[in-house]
């Protein structure tokens, strides 16, 4: 067993390779979302970056932004977590695209909540399966957790898992827009730095 790679050891080449892997994963997730809502989905170029813990909420509109978060733990050959964040308004629009108008019920009903949860699950599975094909590794997502609240509060939960031994986290982040409707979201992969050497090796950019 190798020692845990310190976050500072990542080279620019490795960070680029992770961004590219994110591109492939997010691309597959976008196709899945596009099929679900029968609309075109546009993606930003995924960015892999190593950022201090305090900086993570700024990626998604600041710690007080009202968002819906769908969160899955990833186990298998590599571990980490994957988080779908939708601005509150976007989450409601997305849910109403999937759940035909319920009789006069506004806001987030149980059915809509469950539809969003399922969306997170499907997008994560699409992302991980593309990542699995690329690397030849096996990833197993957990059942999805759901929360609608401040972005910072939602991220706390994800970061707590990753932060015990590191002061920085690695994030592979993609923004997406569903055209024609005002849906904006973020799909964020947080690889566990402890199992990062495995994924880097399979991407052809191992630690020395």
């Amino acid at each position: 067993m190798t020692s845990m790679p310190g976050a500072g050891r990542l080279t620019p080449l490795q960070i680029d390779a992770l961004g590219e892997a994110g591109n492939i994963g997010a691309g597959n997730a976008a196709i899945a979302l596009s099929l679900m809502v029968s609309k075109k989905v546009e993606l930003s170029t995924p960015k892999a970056s190593l950022i201090p813990l305090a900086g993570v909420p700024d990626l998604v509109g600041g710690p007080e932004a009202a968002v819906a978060g769908i969160y899955l733990e990833v186990q298998g050959d590599c571990s980490g977590s994957i988080l779908l964040l939708l601005e509150e308004e976007s989450a409601l629009i997305l849910a109403s695209l999937m759940v035909p108008a319920e009789s006069g019920e506004a806001g987030l009903t149980v059915v809509k909540r469950s539809a969003l949860q399922e969306t997170g699950s499907i997008l994560s599975a699409a992302y991980l399966s593309a990542l699995g094909q690329l690397t030849g590794l096996f990833f197993k997502p957990s059942v999805p957790g759901f929360a609608m609240d401040m972005a910072g509060a939602i991220l706390d939960h994800v970061l707590a898992d990753l932060a015990a031994s590191e002061d920085h986290v690695l994030v592979v982040e993609t923004d997406f827009i569903v055209s024609g409707v005002k849906i904006m979201g973020h799909l964020v992969l947080f690889p566990d730095l402890g199992t990062l050497d495995t994924i880097l090796e399979h991407l052809g950019v191992p630690f020395d």
């Binding site: 813990l53 600041g62 910072g152 939602i154 939960h157």
Partner: peptide
């Protein structure tokens, strides 16, 4: 005062942490 930070003040400042979840 961001995640994992701490700050002290003797200058009558308001110290703020935004969006606490499990923190």
């Amino acid at each position: 005062v961001g995640v994992a930070e701490l700050k002290a003040s003797d200058n009558h400042d308001v110290l703020a942490s935004f969006g606490l979840g499990s923190c």
